[in-house]
Nucleic acid binder design. Sequence first.
DNA 1: TACATACAC
DNA 2: CATGGTGTATGTA
Length: 740
Amino acid sequence: MASPAPRLPVAGPSSEPKASMLKRMGGPSDLKAGVGRGGIRTAEEIQHIVHEVSKRSKYFKDQERRDRELQVKVDKLKGRLAQEELTARGDEEDKADAILKELEETRDLSRVIALIDADAFYAACHVRVNPELEGKAFGVGGGMLTTASYGARKYGCRSAMPFFIAQKLCPHLVSLKLEPDLYVKASREIFAVLSKYGTIAPASLDEAYVDLTQYCADQDVTPTEAITRLRAEVQATTGLTVSAGVSPNKTLSKIAADVNKPNGQFVIDPTREACMEFIQGVRLRKCFGIGRVCETLLNGIGLETVGDIFRDRAKLYLVRHHLGQSAHFRFLLGLYLGLGRNRVKRAKRGDRKTYGVEKTFTPTSDPGKLDDVIRRVAKSLAKDLKRADFSGRTVTLRIKHADFVSVTRAHTPGKNIYLRDYKDLVRIGLMLLHKEIDERPKLIARGEEVKGGRNPVLKARLLGLRVGNLRDERALAKANKLDGWVRVSSRSTPEIELSDSDTDVQRDSDLDDDEDEDDDEADPGKRALNAVMRDAAIDPFADAGDGEGGVKKEDAACDPAAFGGASGSGSGSWMCVDDYDNDAEDEDAEVVRGRFGVHRGATVPKPSQRRAQQPSSSTIVQGSSLAAASRAGSPPKRKSPAAEDASANEKGKKRRIRKEEEEAAKPASGNEWTCPVCDKVFAGSEAAMSGHVAKHFADDEPPARPKVKVKKECGSLGGGGMGGSKVSSKTKVKGKGRKG
DNA sequence: TACATACAC
DNA sequence: CATGGTGTATGTA
C-alpha cells in the first residue's frame, strides 16, 4: 500500500488520480483495447478527460473500491512471495524447468490456425451501406458505444465507453443507431467466405478461427499465401476488411491478429523458435485469459511480459498456490512456450449450460417497480427457453445494487423439477427478490454484512434471472422417440394454474402492454431473415442424439473432443472448442493436459453430467410439486413501500427516494433491439449481441455422427481460471461413434 | 448446491 | 446526470 504522498490539488477538490484508476477507467493504456496509432489526443489528455467526467459517478466510486481491494491482494501476494523466498529450497527453477520440458513435449506445429477479426466491424457495416460515413468520427450505439469508428478512435473513443464520455473526447462525435440486420448479414457473408478455406469456429459476429491446414495442403500454398487470399476474398466479396493472425495455434493467432490491425495480417512460422520469439515480448494483458486482475497481480511481483514468466519462474513457483486461477503456474509456463490449442471446432447446441436475461434500469427501491422488472425479465427468458427448447432446474436471481455491487441468489425447486414457463420463472424470481428485500433490514439490524450499503431498503440498478442445470428437451424427445414438441409444450402449462392464485402473478397481464415485442410479424424484411437464420441455426435434429439421447457417462468422460474453450471466457470460450491437440494419448499425458492441453495442478475436474442423459420419462415439471415447493418457500408478504421508507428514515436516510422513483425502472438506455434469429431483446451492447448471435451460428453445425460429448474440459485459463481440464486420453473419438 | 469472482466479447 | 448484457469456468464452503 504505501500510496504516494498526495500531490497538490488540481482543479477542484480532487486530488491526484491514481495511475491504477486512470488505467481502470479505460485510458488508452488499456492494452486490450488496442488503441494507439495516429491519435489526435495524447494518452494523458484522454485519461484526464475521462477522469474528470467520471470521477464523481457511482460507477467510479465502485471502481475505486475494486481498485483498493485489488491492491490489497497484490500486497498479500508480495508478502507471501517475500516469505516464501526466505525458506526457498533453491530448486524452484528446476521444478519449473521440469514442467517446461513436459509441456514442450506436447507442442504441435502441424496445423495452420488463423484468427480472423473484422476491423471496426459495426462501424464498417454502416460505412458499407452509407459511404458518406467514411472517415467520419462516429460511434455505434446509444448509451454505451458498441464500436467507435477509426475516425473517433483517434480522439480516444472506444467501444464499451458511455456515449456521454466519448462525446467529451470528441465533441463532434455522431451516434448511429444499432442495426442488427446489417451486422448479421455482413457476418454471414464473411463467414461464408471463411468456410471456403477450412472449418471455422465463430467467436462472435466479427471474429472466427479458421483451420487452414487442409487448404494449404490441397492448394500447396504457404500459410501466408492462404491468409492473403482469404483476406482479399473477404474484402472483394463483402467490402469489409479483416485482420488476421496465423500460427500453429489459437493462442498465438489471436495475439498475432492484433499486430497489424486494421486490415493487416501477421504470420508466425511453424517453428518452435518463431513461436517463442513472437510471444516473449508480448504484454501479459494481451494474452487471452489474462485480464486486469491477473495482470495486476503479476505486475505486482515484477512480471510485465510473457518472457518474464521464464525469467521469474522461480518466483512464480513459490507463489504458485496464490496466483488465482487465472495465473495458474502451468498455464503461464505454457504461455511462455507459445503453446495453445489448435483444434477448430464449433460448439454444439448441447454445450450450452445456462440461459439468462438481465436488465439495467434507473436505480429504485420501489417494490412494485422491481417486481415489474422481474416480470419483464422472466417473460423474456421464458421466451428464449421455449424457443430453444430447453428447460432447467436452477433459477438464479442477480441483483446489482445502486452502488454497483452485485449479489446472486439461487433456488432449485427439486431434483426432478425442470422449469421453462414464464409463471414459474416469475414466481421463483419474485420469491428470491422478496426474500432478499425482507431479510435485508434484519441482517442490518443484527449488524451483519450486506452488500449494497447499510440502508435497510434495497435499492437496485439491475435485476436478472438465469436458468441453469439445463435439460435439452429436444434431445430428450428425440431420444425417446416421442413427439417432443407436443409433449413439451403441453406439459408444463397445466400446473401454472396453481400459481394463478398467487398474489405475485396477478398482474402478469400488465406486462403485456408495457413491453415485449412479441410482434414476430413486425418487419417483413426482418422476418425473412429470421426464417433463414432460424432454419440454418436451429436444426431441430441437431444434437438431438442420433438415436442416443443420452450419452453414457463413461463415454462422455472419455471424449477427447472436449468442450474446451478458453475458459473463463464467456461467449468466447464457448466457441473455442477444443483442446490442444495431442496425439500422445497415454495415461501420463492425461495428467499433463490442461488449458494448453496441459493439466494444471492436481485437481482433476470430474466429468460433468450430461444433462440430456436423464431418463426421458421424467416430466418437465412436476406441476404440483413445483407449486407446492414454491409456496412452501414463499416469503412473507412484503411491507408496504411506506413502511420501508419508515425503515429508511430510522437509518437516517432521507426520503428523496420518492422522487427518484418517479422515473425509476425505466430502461437506462433507450437503445433496444432484437436478435434477428430468436427475437431476444438487447439493450445495446456489441458484445452481448455478438456473443448471442454467434451462438446461433454455432448451432448451425449439422450433427456430426454419433458423437459423444463431454463437458468439462476446458482448460482455461481464464478467469476464473483456468481450469484444468481433463481429457482423457484413451479414446480418441475421432469420429466413430461409439457407444456401445 | 449456492455464491462470488474473473474473463471475454 | 451518467458506465451493458450474455455466458463460461473455478474455488470455496
